[in-house]
């Protein structure tokens, strides 16, 4: 089947403003949007720029706005998309070229919440034990692949780039509620300010955009509640 794509192209060396370009490619209905981009880049225009790595919904490289909503190009089937398939870069980041955005600020915020285990007691000789219930407490937020789909779907982030964003809060949640971790206070102090969790307006765009099905708004709400209660 012939599939029509409209791509918001931008080359900083040539263009002042992004502009739409139309491409028609032969694809199978079971192909993904990423396959369409690969066909365009491989057969029609090698200058097209986008990120992709595993192409199986695990690495989180190819998040972009597809038909008005953040999705991973490698998880969006062509047969489920209305034509023309319109693709834009994620919103709120500086566009470097076509669908490649500057993820630098995103990872700065990720690092700010200290997304690693902070030991609270002397290192045990063997593994740190945890009950199934304790593990269940933060199970949802372990699924994040840092694609940025949640953060760039959030109106609070569009209007205020200083907002730490849903993805960083999800990462903080993953450790704050981990019984083995002792760094909750440090993370909560990063999140308990104007650019932290309180910027969340419970819009739920993050929940709808997350390709891993994480209930991001719930995670943010739980962090808000912990701060309001004064601790875990």
């Amino acid at each position: 089947m012939e599939v029509t794509f409209q791509l918001l192209r931008f080359d900083p060396l040539k263009d002042r403003q992004p502009h739409w370009e139309t491409y028609r490619v032969e694809l199978e209905p079971t192909d993904r949007v990423l396959d369409g981009l690969e066909a365009i880049k491989g057969q029609m225009d090698g200058t097209l720029a986008y990120r992709r790595s595993c192409a199986h919904g695990v690495c989180g490289s190819d998040a972009m706005i597809i038909n008005g909503r953040n999705r991973l190009a490698c998880k969006a089937l062509v047969k489920n998309m209305k034509e023309p398939i319109r693709i834009e870069p994620m919103r709120g980041f500086k566009v470097l070229k076509d669908f490649v955005v500057d993820m630098g600020p995103f990872f700065e915020k990720y690092r700010a919440v200290k997304p690693y285990l902070i030991e609270k007691e002397a290192r045990p000789q063997k593994e740190r034990l945890q009950s199934q219930e304790e593990r269940e407490r933060f199970d949802d937020t372990t699924k994040c692949i840092l694609c940025g789909a949640c953060t760039t779907s959030c109106p609070s982030f569009w209007f205020n780039a200083g907002y730490v964003g849903p993805a960083a809060i999800v990462q903080a949640h993953r450790f704050i509620f981990d019984s083995r971790d002792g760094g909750a206070e440090e993370r909560l102090s990063v999140l308990n300010n104007q650019e932290g969790v309180w910027r969340c307006r419970t819009v739920f765009n993050c929940v709808e955009a997350c390709p891993r099905g994480i209930n991001v708004t719930r995670a943010i709400g739980e962090v808000k509640k912990v701060i309001a209660k004064g601790g875990r």
Binding site: P18, N67, V203
Partner: peptide, 10 residues
């Protein structure tokens, strides 16, 4: 740029 197609929440 188009309007972001958020859901009910948006």
């Amino acid at each position: 740029m188009s309007i972001y197609r958020g859901g009910i929440g948006q």
